[in-house]
Amino acid sequence: MTDIVHTDGVLGGKPRLKGHRISVLQIADMVLDAGHSPEYVADQLGISLSDVHTALAYYYDNPDEMDEIRDRNEQLENRLREQAITPDHVEQ
């Protein structure tokens, strides 16, 4: 069974499957938000079904951490959106 690890410099230190650059949140989003089956996610990411369930268990066991990561991701997306050059800013 794969462990969940946090490594500075890998996926921003977010929890991920040991030996992979696949985050817990990525797996949870694929299953919970996108509605894919755990079997499909395992197949698409090239991991075991056990790995998917390990990630989901971690996700459910750590709701505060998952909420914090989602908030940081949203803040980053908003900052990038604000800094992006849009057609309104392009001189003609």
Rank of each mutant, 00 (worst) to 15 (best):
E77T: 15
Q26G: 15
L76T: 12
A55E: 00
N78D: 14
Q92F: 13
P15A: 07
N62I: 03
S23K: 01
R81Q: 09
E39L: 10
P87M: 00
G12C: 02
D71E: 15
A34E: 14
P38Q: 07
Q44A: 11
H53T: 08
I4E: 00
N78F: 08
D64N: 09
D51C: 07
S23C: 06
Y59D: 04
S37P: 04
K18N: 12
R21N: 15
V24T: 03
D71Q: 15
D71M: 14
G35Q: 00
S23W: 00
Y40Q: 15
Q44G: 03
N78Y: 06
I27E: 01
P87Y: 03
N73D: 15
A28W: 02
I27Q: 00
L80M: 11
T54Q: 02
S50K: 09
Y58W: 04
G19R: 09
D8G: 13
R72P: 11
L45C: 06
G13K: 02
E74F: 15
D43I: 09
V31K: 01
K18H: 12
Q44E: 14
D61S: 06
L76D: 14
D64H: 06
H36F: 08
M30C: 05
E77M: 13
D3G: 07
R79H: 11
L45N: 10
G9Q: 01
L32R: 13
G46A: 04
L49H: 13
G9R: 02
S48W: 08
E82Y: 09
H36N: 06
L11Y: 14
T2S: 03
T86V: 07
L25E: 03
A42T: 11
E82G: 12
N73L: 13
L56N: 05
R16F: 00
R70P: 05
A84I: 10
T54P: 02
I69V: 09
P63G: 05
A34M: 14
L45Y: 04
T2I: 09
D29G: 10
E65Q: 10
Q92A: 12
Q92D: 13
V90L: 06
G12K: 03
L11R: 13
Q83S: 08
A28E: 05
M1L: 10
I22T: 06
G46V: 07
S50G: 07
Y60F: 08
D88G: 09
V24D: 03
D61W: 01
V41F: 05
V90Q: 04
D8N: 14
M1F: 03
R81Y: 07
S23V: 03
L80S: 06
L56Q: 04
